[in-house]
Nucleic acid binder design. Structure first.
Lengths: 255, 255
DNA sequence: GAGTGGTCTAGACCACGAC
DNA sequence: TCGTGGTCTAGACCACTCG
């Protein structure tokens, strides 16, 4: 309500500050409705466009969500899946399900895997750099979208050297029990280690649509390289993860 | 230039699409100037407000940066620091510098640590949950802002149980060679393992200012818990990292 | 139909940067 | 000084939700 017109802080930012403050202080709790835009126009004595810009800010920060015709509410935070590095240990892999399915089941969420593409593709740069192939060389790709609790959680693309997957169920819709890692080990490529590389950024338009991301939600690009006991990279896994639904956890030795 | 007025896609989004496309296709490279707003008004035949909203979108996506009086340019990506879990192994710690300083030096960036606060504070929830203390119990806090290459890279807060730091240089500005981990080990708390938990989100206003983040840049909240050989949590490290300047890397066994 | 958000205009005035 | 972006207004019209 103050809105200091003499301040050099723009009015729309002051309005955003006001509600940001109420949200972080807990005056407005998750799910609570903000006043309507026309109401704000009256209370603050500004034009509609100015109110709108204030709300644009709060949306971009991920603090509120707006539904056309219904109003603006404080964003509710959903369940967060914890992706621990232990999910990939041999013991857990032997339990049967792939890492993702196990995580979902642990949270009591129903799980679905949607295959988007299966086939050879020229290796993208981030793949050829890690897999032992030359740039643009053909590799086998498994592209899928992973669902948990009825919402898309991540886009997951796996890439394999051709010679490792030919004639295995990895090239099929269902890679079989234990997933593709089990198939690779059966073929004599015992896994020795993983490297995971993470970077957060804002999503592209396509990612936003495909993962049904709200405004103000970043993604984490996770690239996992699986190395066998011979030191060969046998899979590069590239995934785009909805940041508001995941925490990553790594435990490692201090020695 | 098309701008399909009959389309149900809003004009400002179509304009954003147009430039997003040119940027991702490489027609507009990093550092290249976009036309001025008034120029866009002419080319697209729309009002200034509409052009402005299109640019707001691109800024929020982190694709362009605008400087008042100078124009709008395609965002240039700076150097990215790779934070590998190996930076915390005993061998690397023994090398002398704390993890952050070593990372910066490896990139040839000058390094600075700015102490923001030193003293006891009531333990925040994320700290008391991990350190073995009750909620709000006093703990010793070291809050600092880490700089690399002349820009702020991360906000780093370390929290310690009081009995572990009393009378040690950890409570001083300079924690001494090898940093606070070396001091803890000298005191008989040999480090056994670390747990790191990462989550990405959009920054708060304060974080945005303090880290000088451009619009459309997320942060990664990294919480590291250091465990000694007795299984006791001896430090909780809470940091806010500028996502556009960092990649996180973890290597771990498949067994 | 009443109320809500979503888009767009035309124009005013201010603030910053470079020549 | 000129061109650039930054803020704000007043009002029009459209689209969605709910009773």
């Amino acid at each position: 309500m103050p809105i200091d017109i003499t301040s050099d802080r723009p009015v729309f930012k002051q309005i955003a500050d006001h509600y940001r403050d109420e949200i972080t202080r807990g005056v407005l709790r998750a799910g609570a409705a903000l006043p309507s835009e026309s109401q704000m126009v009256k209370t603050f004595g500004v034009s509609g466009g100015t109110v709108r810009r204030a709300l644009d800010l709060l949306r971009a920060e991920g603090l509120v969500v707006t539904e056309h015709g219904r109003g603006t509410r404080v964003r509710e935070r959903g369940a967060v899946v914890r992706l621990a590095s232990q999910r990939l240990t041999r013991a857990n892999r032997a339990a049967g399900l792939g890492g993702f399915a196990a995580d979902m089941r642990a949270l009591g969420l129903d799980y679905k895997q949607e295959v988007l593409y299966l086939g050879n593709v020229p290796a993208p740069a981030e793949v050829s750099e890690r897999l032992d192939v030359s740039a643009e060389a053909p590799v086998f790709a498994r592209r899928r979208r992973m669902w948990g609790g009825g919402v898309p959680m991540q886009l997951a693309d796996s890439y394999y050297p051709l010679d490792l997957v030919e004639g295995t169920p990895i090239v099929e819709e269902d890679a079989g029990p234990g997933g593709s890692y089990a198939r690779l080990e059966e073929r004599g490529h015992r896994l020795a280690s993983f490297r995971e590389e993470l970077q957060a950024r804002m999503p592209t338009e396509d990612e936003k649509k495909s993962l049904r991301l709200l405004p103000g939600v970043p993604v984490v690009s996770l690239i996992r390289t699986a190395i066998d006991t011979g030191g060969r990279a046998v899979e590069v896994f590239v995934s785009i993860v909805a940041a508001d639904k995941h925490v990553f956890q790594y435990d490692f030795s201090a020695d």
